[in-house]
Design a protein around this nucleic acid. Structure first.
Lengths: 214, 214
DNA sequence: AAGCCAATCACATAAAGAGGTGAAAAACTC
DNA sequence: GAGTTTTTCACCTCTTTATGTGATTGGCTT
């Protein structure tokens, strides 16, 4: 392997940072290009050091790893961010992922596994422990059982009009959009209201959104 | 270990089913309680066989593994469903997870890993390959970068009024709700419209929802 | 063929909402 | 303590929406 994976490390705990530094430097396939206790110079370091993989702690003084992650992805989208942290709560996991992290390891992960995870994330995987994965899946499953949204029996045309309502259009705009008269729009909307059991535009829009009719 | 993990297998391909059957029976910590080529008798088998873990193929004649999964979870929520399949597309992965699957393995996974995954899922983990995990993360990341929602600088009172708008209330109702006159409501709403740069109730509500201002 | 429903349009009235202008008391800021 | 913002209210005008009633056309069903 001629090209080493370029690693950048952010970790505020000195012992951990030095331990990781040692581990990474001892691995021939990796090249540690920097190790810092905070992300205050992130905007310089990412473009300058061009890391392939950033190991990011979450709890750091100043900007947290959660907040730093989207900045990394904005500065250099091809850089993979691997969270390495002690936090196992769904909230932080979720935020990190939403912000662009590609993997999530716990600090108690063994050195061997950390090295493996780095290769993994570099090759397009998303390493995470199966307990983290379970928490991630949890998010999807939390969302309402999706049940089949009640069928309000809207006609195709009515559905189109409803979609336009949800775009925030006025009657006039909807009429123009569909090349029909305002009175026709009114007529459709009357029927929609009856079927949805509402009596204002806002209620119809809210119901359409909440029940995913559109 | 006195209690073996009870396994139920659904797999339409005969060779694969028999191969898996052999593998599972050869593992002392597991007890195979059934192996079927389709899910037509799912409603009888789940309550009858009380599996701890169901290995579920996706592509089966009749009801697919995707459709069978929520039925399993409904019949016996404590049963863990592990998808074992050849499909790696985000759509199927997503559907399986939404329907309650707790893990997702590819058929090319080694026997050792499959056995490990069964124990893993039984103990509350969510085994999946890191490439599957990457696809799962992808869903989260597709959603808008969340950035910090723009600050429209609404005053506390304006925010309350906006919340009422989002409940679908009329001016009159909002006035009653907050013990203020309709004219005051109008006044607040005018300011809200200015700040949000909209000019109708529906637009305000949509913007509030979309940008998570409320 | 008769009947039903979807889609179109019209006219009319009443209620709700949008926009202009002004203003006063209270709270907050500098 | 002077100036700004927030919250409250009023009145007036115009537009948009909501609702009633009715009617025509074309497609689908029985």
């Amino acid at each position: 392997m001629e090209n080493k994976i370029r690693i950048l490390l952010y970790e505020d705990n000195r012992d951990l940072r030095e331990g990781m530094t040692f581990l990474l430097q001892a691995t021939p396939s990796l090249q540690l290009v920097g190790a810092f206790p905070d992300t205050s110079n992130l905007e310089m370091q990412i473009p300058g050091l061009k890391p392939d993989v950033v190991l990011m702690d979450i709890d750091m003084p100043g900007r947290t790893g959660i907040d730093a992650t989207p900045v990394v992805k904005a500065l250099r989208p091809e850089t993979q961010v691997l969270m390495v942290t002690v936090f196992e709560d769904e909230d932080r996991i979720f935020q990190a992922i939403r912000n662009g992290a590609s993997g999530y390891l716990l600090k108690r992960t063994s050195p061997t596994e950390i090295i493996a995870a780095i290769h993994d994330v570099y090759q397009g995987g998303s390493p995470m422990t199966s307990s983290i994965a379970r928490r991630v899946l949890h998010f999807f499953q939390q969302e309402q059982p999706v049940a089949k949204s009640k069928d309000y029996d809207l006609s195709p045309r009515e559905l189109e009009i409803l979609k336009s309502l949800v775009k925030g259009f006025s009657y006039k705009l909807i009429a123009d959009e569909h090349f029909i008269s305002i009175d026709t729009v009114r007529s459709h909307i009357r029927h929609i209201y009856e079927k949805l059991q509402v009596n204002s535009k806002t209620e119809a829009v809210l119901k359409a959104l909440k029940e995913k009719i559109v």
